[in-house]
Computed example of a mutant assay.
Amino acid sequence: MSLIPLSLTAFELDVALAPWLASVFYLGLLIGATSIERVVAKIGHRLAFILFLGLLIASVMTQLLIPSAEFWLAARFIAGIAVAGVFVVVESWLLMASTPKARAKRLGIYMTSLYGGSAVGQLAIDPLGTTGAAPYLFVIALLFLAILAPLLITSGQPESQHQQKLPLKEIKSLSRPAMLGCLASGLLLGPIYGLMPMYIANQPEQAEHTGTLMASIILGGMLVQPLVSYLSTRIGKSLLMAMFCLIGAAAVLGIVQASSFVPLVISYLVLGACSFALYPIAITLACDLLPMAKIVSATEVMLLSYSVGSVLGPVLAANLSDATDGVVFYLGGCLITTCIYMLIKSMENIRTGDTPIAG
C-alpha cells in the first residue's frame, strides 16, 4: 500500500494519481464486500481464500507488467475486490467462536499478526527501494507464500452450508456504533495507507525516515491489539472507541508540534495504535449477539461500512485542505468527531442499562 504512491515517479506516472489509486482500491473493497458471502457459501472458506489470494497476485503482476494509469487503476480495483475476499474469509472464520471473549481473543491475535506483517513491510521500503521490479516481485513472492497455507492445510474450515444471509431488517438492527466505528476506521486508514507516505516524504525533516515513520504507525496498530482484546470485554465498546479517538487526536497535535525525532515517532506510534484499534472493536461489537451462521454476512456488512469510509477518505483528505499538514488535520477532525459520537452513544447505553459487552 505504501509502495504504490512512492513508486509512481519511477514508473513515469503522475503523483496526482495517488489518491485515486487509493480510492479505487477501496471502491473495489466496497464492491467486493457485497458479494463475498455468496462465494464463501458456494465453495467454502479454504477455496475462497485461495481464489482471492490468486486474484490479488494477478493484480500486482498487472501493475508491474503494464505501467499505465488506466491499467493501474483497474488493477487496484481488482486488488480491492480480492482483499475484501481475504478479509471476509479470514475474519468470519476467526469470529466463529462460541463466546464474545473467545472472539475478541482470536481477533486480537489476528490483528496483531496483520499489523505486525504490515509494519515489517514498511521497513522493507528502505532496503528494497521504490524503483524497478524488485519491490513488486518481493510482494508477489510473499503472496505466493501466503497461499501455501490454505493449499497445504485442508481441514478445519467451517461448513459452508450453515451460512445465512442477513435480511435487510436485521442489517438495520445491527449496532450503529459498530457500523460507524467501521466507517470511521476506513476514513482514517484509507488516507493513512494512501496519502501518509507522501505527506511524510514531503516533510524536509521527516523525508529520510519515511519507512521508519510508516512502520511506527502500523507497529502502533500491532502493539495495541492485545490491549484492545483485553479491554473490549471489560469496558463498553462505544466508550472504548471514544477513548482511543481522543488519544489519537492528541497524537495528531503531537505530530504537528514535535520538535525532535523521538516525540515524532511516539506521536506516529500512538496515532497508529488509536486508528487501527477502531475496526476490531467495532466488528466484535457487531458480532457479539449474532449466531455463528450469520457471522460471514455481518462481517461483510462491517467491511462494507469500512470500505465506504476508505473510498471517501483519501479524496476528502486530499481536497479538503491545501495546507502542508492538511492530511494530519483531516485525521484529527475524524478522530474528534468519532469521539463525540461514541461518547454520546456510550452515555445512552449507560442510561438504558446495557452491559459492557453489548457496547
Rank of each mutant, 00 (worst) to 15 (best):
L143R: 09
V139K: 04
P167E: 02
Y193E: 06
M198W: 04
P150M: 05
I153C: 10
G190T: 02
K169T: 08
M196V: 15
L143V: 02
H162M: 07
M198Q: 12
L145Q: 07
P150G: 08
M179D: 00
L152D: 05
S160F: 12
P150I: 01
L143D: 06
L188K: 02
I192A: 02
M196S: 09
A184H: 03
G190Y: 08
M179S: 01
L166W: 06
E159V: 12
P197E: 04
F138A: 15
K165Q: 12
A184S: 12
S173K: 12
A146D: 11
M179F: 07
Q163G: 01
A141C: 11
C182T: 00
L137R: 11
G156A: 10
L137W: 12
L152P: 10
L152F: 15
A134D: 09
P158Y: 13
L168P: 05
L195I: 08
Q161E: 13
L189C: 02
S160G: 04
S160L: 07
L145V: 13
P167A: 01
G181C: 04
G194R: 02
A146N: 12
L166N: 02
A133C: 05
G156R: 09
V139D: 08
L180E: 00
A178P: 09
T154Y: 14
T154S: 14
K165W: 12
S175I: 00
Q163K: 05
F138W: 12
P177H: 01
L180H: 04
G186P: 06
H162E: 13
Q164H: 15
S175W: 06
L166E: 03
Y136T: 04
G190K: 01
A178Y: 07
L145E: 08
G132E: 04
A141M: 08
G132K: 03
I147N: 11
L168H: 05
Q163F: 15
A146C: 14
S173R: 13
L148C: 14
P197G: 05
I171G: 02
G190W: 07
Y199E: 08
Q163M: 12
K165S: 13
V139Y: 07
M198S: 13
L145P: 10
S173I: 00
E170K: 11
A133H: 09
A201W: 03
L151T: 05
I147K: 06
E170C: 04
A201N: 14
S160Y: 11
P191H: 06
Q163A: 10
Y136Q: 11
A146V: 01
F144E: 10
